[in-house]
């Protein structure tokens, strides 16, 4: 395994949980899969379609997202929205994210005590 592959693997692991958090926060305003993918990538949260679509399904199954079919356009689209439980999880994840960020900052600046 070369260095690039190793780096890519670790980056993927680091980002895995953050995609869930980003979806929960972003879907406070309802949106459909492709638009969500675009907007997350524009924000710099890189996520693959093969990861995102199954993830949305899983989050819906866990009751963290609710969904509704929008048939206004020629192509029916499934709009997802963060549920109340999803909101709670987003809160918990954000708190933990901040805590980790603080800890890493203290670690790198060297005044961890």
């Amino acid at each position: 395994m070369n260095t690039d592959e190793t780096t890519a693997g670790h980056l993927q692991e680091l980002r895995r949980g953050t995609v869930v958090l980003a979806c929960l926060v972003r879907l406070r305003t309802p949106d459909y899969g492709y638009a969500l993918l675009e907007s997350l990538n524009e924000l710099g949260i890189t996520v693959d379609a093969n990861t995102l679509y199954p993830l949305l399904r899983r989050l819906e199954k866990q009751g963290l997202l609710t969904s509704e079919w929008n048939t206004d356009d020629a192509r029916p689209r499934k709009f997802y929205r963060t549920s109340a439980t999803g909101e709670q999880l987003a809160g918990a994840l954000t708190t933990d994210w901040r805590r980790l960020d603080d800890a890493l900052t203290r670690l790198t600046t060297g005044d961890e005590r």
């Binding site: 459909y32 899969g33 492709y34 379609a49 679509y53 192509r75």
Partner: peptide, 14 residues
């Protein structure tokens, strides 16, 4: 099937 059609359609359009 509907979800998949939506995804294929959107990706083709792009």
């Amino acid at each position: 099937a509907n979800e998949l059609r939506e995804r294929i359609g959107d990706e083709s359009d792009a």
